[in-house]
Design a protein around this nucleic acid. Structure first.
Lengths: 347, 347
DNA sequence: CTGAAAGCGCTTACAG
DNA sequence: CTGAAAGCGCTTACAG
């Protein structure tokens, strides 16, 4: 049988150096009590040989794979890149790999995705759940990222506070009538954001909410939202509950000859890739994904290292709310001369 | 020491059934020659017990982890969701898991990411390279996804042909002067697309290329591109080399009072999430990511199963070019009454 | 400070 | 058709 892993293993280093594998293992891991000089010699030799420890061997022995699973409701979601990047970074920093699984489609696909990951032996799971799914305890520690309203949630952006930032910003700009625009009345995230906006309104301000239908991505753009008419009715600010909807709002207004921000302000959420690219650039509220990922991963890792059984439960200790941050861009500049002047200069 | 994996293992099933582990293993894998009835009994019992094979044990024994690595130049890239989703699906269908790594930043980060994955014991690697990186042969099979112009490339969308689709579409619409808009003259992908467009022009048509600077995502929108002036100069079609740039073009034109598509057509590439959402919806050219992923993964899997050594090289046998597909939406409807009528009806 | 030994769970020739 | 045995590479008590 061919040598499957061409690289050297512990015993090759051991024999080559005339010591035992146990000593090599201890020297390399820094755990056992090995003499300084021997440690040096062993490490040097290992490096020379280009030794790479076998994850399989280690995993079999320790019962830990060193891998975390990431389950997403829909990888095609535009927020995904940021989540994945942040989780991957946090995991890599903690010495873990990240296995992905897409629960595209329904809830049963989510369960399947979780199972696939568990079968691959992940030590823990980061789950961004679909709608308001309750995650039935998997057989490993689980961290859930969504909103405070989600049962079993561990950590999330403070969407409510994010909404308040939008409200305060629009108040500063002097807006009185706000139209909140979402596409999913069932979404915890969107409800938190909308609630935050309403709770943050100042006296004299009012808000209505418009739930628009979800677009089929293939089908081309849906019905016009009639936003120009809303401007006619006196709405001057459109607060979308996601940048994707903000984009829809912005382009429809522009197409219908409404000038943004001179005639109406548009704001979004999430600071998605295009928010800085469109003209005018979108004012938005950003999650601190790196912080969220860091909290989720470290909670998971702590749990993994603590409990010696793999029987996992939700890592619920924390329940962190990570504050969001307002990013002011041109789409919500106030429609007064001073601001317009400034805006022209830096555009 | 606590039982790390709570689940049953082969020997538990074996003793519980009074047979040998070898027989259980053979029955479950369907490889060995085990009597029909015994196979049935064993499988049934395994299912009852909720047996999940240990990947670690299997990996250690076989030298294969059953995991593929996916290396991306920048996970924050908006194309990433589609790539990841497609690769994950293709891999899962072939019985493989997908470990991700982000080579954010420079080329050395890419090498590091590859090493991290190799150290985790991936059986093969799917790499979307940065710029024109040459992938130095890693110690496992590698499939590279980029363009035909990329050295060592295995499979990619036919970006050139995609460009030709755009050219033919604009020709059909009666456009004469085309402005091609890209942001990276070094990019193989963008050059292929631009070349395809130019090569597909009909007699009487002409194209110029405008390379715009890359936006810093944080910095807010960059300088205006002066597109309205280009309309004044007689350009009637703006062919962006990616939907992100198309979005920038579309919103700037609209902000400056140019009506799309009445006064100018706008097209993009990639069918990114927002292309169907904006008003007017973007005409674009779509990659068949599922096909690309399927080809890359199956080439990898074939190579993994064939070669018994893990010494991998680039899986270069195929060199497939997967055709792209034109998706016509409102942003490039011709500016004649008939079309405008149709457009109103289905909008 | 160092080493001999056991064992994690699996698969695969080989023998019966 | 079935089983006994070896061994993948590692870590961890335990003994010296």
């Amino acid at each position: 049988m061919a040598q499957l892993r061409p690289g050297p293993n512990l015993s090759r280093i051991a024999t080559s150096l005339g010591v035992s594998v146990a000593t090599v293992s201890n020297a390399l891991s820094g755990k056992g009590r090995v003499s300084e000089q021997l440690v040096g010699k062993i490490r040097e030799h290992a490096a020379e040989l280009g030794y790479v420890p076998s994850q399989a061997g280690r995993a079999l022995r320790t019962g830990r794979s060193g891998v975390l699973g990431l389950v997403l409701p829909d990888i095609a979601n535009p927020l995904f890149p940021k989540i994945a990047q942040a989780i991957e970074f946090a995991a890599a920093s903690a010495g873990y790999g990240v296995l992905i699984a897409d629960s595209r489609g329904n809830v049963s696909a989510q369960t399947e995705a979780i199972n696939r990951l568990v079968e691959r032996g992940v030590d823990g799971l980061v789950i961004v759940p679909r709608r308001a799914t309750r995650i039935s305890a998997a057989s490993c520690p689980v961290a859930v990222i969504d909103t405070a309203s989600t049962p079993g949630n561990t950590v999330a952006a403070d969407h409510w506070q994010g909404g308040q930032l939008i409200a305060a910003h629009l108040a500063d700009l002097g807006h009185k009538r706000i139209l909140i625009i979402g596409n999913n009345p069932e979404s915890n995230v969107q409800n938190d954001r909308a609630g935050g906006i309403r709770s943050g309104l100042c006296p004299g301000m009012s808000a209505e909410t418009l739930w628009i239908e979800k677009l089929e991505h293939q089908a081309g753009s849906g019905c016009p939202l009639g936003l120009a008419r809303k401007v006619g009715e006196g709405f001057t600010a459109f607060a979308a509950l996601s940048d994707l909807q903000a984009l829809r709002v912005l382009t429809e207004l522009q197409r219908d000859g409404i000038h943004v921000p001179a005639q109406a302000s548009v704001t979004g959420f999430d600071d998605l890739i295009w928010s800085a690219v469109v003209t005018p650039a979108l004012t938005t509220v950003k999650m601190d994904m790196d912080a969220i990922a860091e909290i989720a991963v470290s909670a998971l890792v702590k749990n993994i290292k603590t409990s010696s059984t793999r029987e996992g439960a939700l890592v619920t200790a924390e329940k962190d709310r990570v504050p969001m941050q307002l990013i002011i861009r041109q789409s919500s500049a106030p429609a007064n001369p001073v601001q317009e002047h400034l805006q022209m200069e830096n555009s």
